[in-house]
Amino acid sequence: MDERLVAVVAYDGVELLDIACVTSCLDIANRIGASPPYRAMLLTLGRRSITCDSGIQLQADEALERFNEPFDTLMVSGGLGHEEAASDPRLVGHVRRLAALARRVSSACTGATVLAEAGLLTGRRATTHWMYADKLAESYPDVQVDADPIYIRDGQVATSGGVTSALDLTLSFIEEDHGEALARGVAMGTVAYLQRPGGQSQMSMFVATRLSGDLLVRRLRDHIVSHLNSDLSTPVLARFAGVSERHLSRLFLTHVEQTPAQYVRGVRTEAAAHLVMSTELPLGAVARQCGFGSTESLRQAFLDRYGVPPSKYRRAPA
């Protein structure tokens, strides 16, 4: 094999990051020694230049309809134009045709809509940007949509969640193709978090509560995140907020759909997961920094949330 050809399908209204997360990772992989190297090609109908969501214009490398050779990976990009793209029978038909020529098929973000329309997700588990997951599930009931993971691999077909999740999926491809060391080098080059397991939630605890319009809940969220190794029991949080424990619980159940204790444990576990994967800190130190009373408490939290202990989570390839 002289090269690994990656065909990236794009259209008007595509998200530039959905393309760049893939192509930049592949370029860095080549620069640090991927062998065989990757070659990324941008495909559009008629080889037309396309306008991204941001207004940036991109010139295609090849016409989608003229591309007709076996290749390594098909990647369908997402973006605000995904529904219009999925309603174009020519584009969808050529995506279906190319899928039969590719070793693996994938989508970034809302590109999953195009794969679904092409029948490539039928009977499969798939993800997409969390904001569009309900619509995907409603439009394609034969697809097992899971809005939570950052990416899902079901056989030869892989789908990634919102926008930069395409970077995580591409890193997993690079590791599969060239090994962990090279994938780690790419992650360092992109200053990325290697490696978020595919099952990690798109909606991080650290940002989800920002969606709440309740100022007190947001204030408590900020306090929790910045004081993970402090006493964050419900009585202490209630005193900090100046409300009763009962009212505090009611606020969290209303705005976060969790009790204060459940929320604190989730944030601590997510923070610990980040430290486990991005540092070489001993697990005991991770437990202390994140407010777990012991490594056993940390272990149990990982088992409950991720299904594996922290030691195995740290070694997990993706």
Rank of each mutant, 00 (worst) to 15 (best):
S165N: 04
R239E: 12
E180W: 12
P282D: 15
S165F: 03
E270D: 13
L26F: 05
T254K: 13
A285S: 14
A271L: 07
R250W: 00
M203K: 07
F173C: 06
D53P: 02
T51G: 08
R4H: 03
L43M: 10
F67R: 00
V163G: 09
T113Y: 11
A60Y: 09
Q57V: 10
I150T: 03
C52Q: 08
P141M: 12
T164H: 07
D27V: 04
A86R: 02
V114A: 03
V225L: 13
R104A: 03
A158Y: 05
L215P: 00
M188D: 13
A166W: 01
R305E: 14
L5F: 01
G33Q: 07
T159C: 06
M131K: 01
V286L: 14
A85P: 00
S204T: 11
H129R: 02
T44M: 14
A108P: 09
S160K: 02
R305M: 14
L298P: 05
R104K: 12
G198K: 11
E138I: 02
L45W: 11
R104H: 09
R196K: 15
R268C: 09
T23V: 14
Q156L: 03
G307I: 15
L171C: 10
A99G: 15
V308L: 15
P309H: 09
L220D: 07
L101P: 01
M41L: 15
L120R: 10
G199V: 00
V207L: 14
P89Y: 02
A86K: 01
I19L: 14
G162Q: 11
L298W: 12
Y132Q: 10
V267M: 12
D2A: 12
A272G: 03
F71D: 05
L232G: 01
A63W: 02
H82K: 11
S212V: 12
L253S: 03
A126K: 04
V308A: 15
R125D: 09
A208C: 11
T44P: 06
G111V: 04
D134H: 07
S278I: 03
R48S: 15
T209I: 15
E180G: 05
V157K: 12
R218E: 10
N68I: 08
A133Q: 02
E280D: 13
P282V: 15
T128S: 04
E180Q: 11
V76C: 04
K135E: 15
F240H: 08
A29M: 06
T122K: 15
L91M: 10
N68K: 11
F67K: 00
D18T: 03
L248C: 06
E245V: 00
H227P: 10
Y11N: 05
L74P: 01
R221D: 13
G155H: 12
T113C: 08
L281D: 06
M205F: 13
Q59I: 13
W130M: 10
G111K: 00
A187V: 04
T127V: 07
V236T: 03
D88E: 08
A272E: 04
L215V: 13
P317W: 14
M188I: 09
L120E: 06
A102S: 07
V105L: 07
E270R: 00
T73R: 11
L211E: 07
V186W: 03
R39L: 09
H129I: 08
Q156K: 02
G189Y: 06
R97V: 05
H82S: 05
L74T: 01
S49L: 11
P141K: 10
A20H: 08
L228V: 04
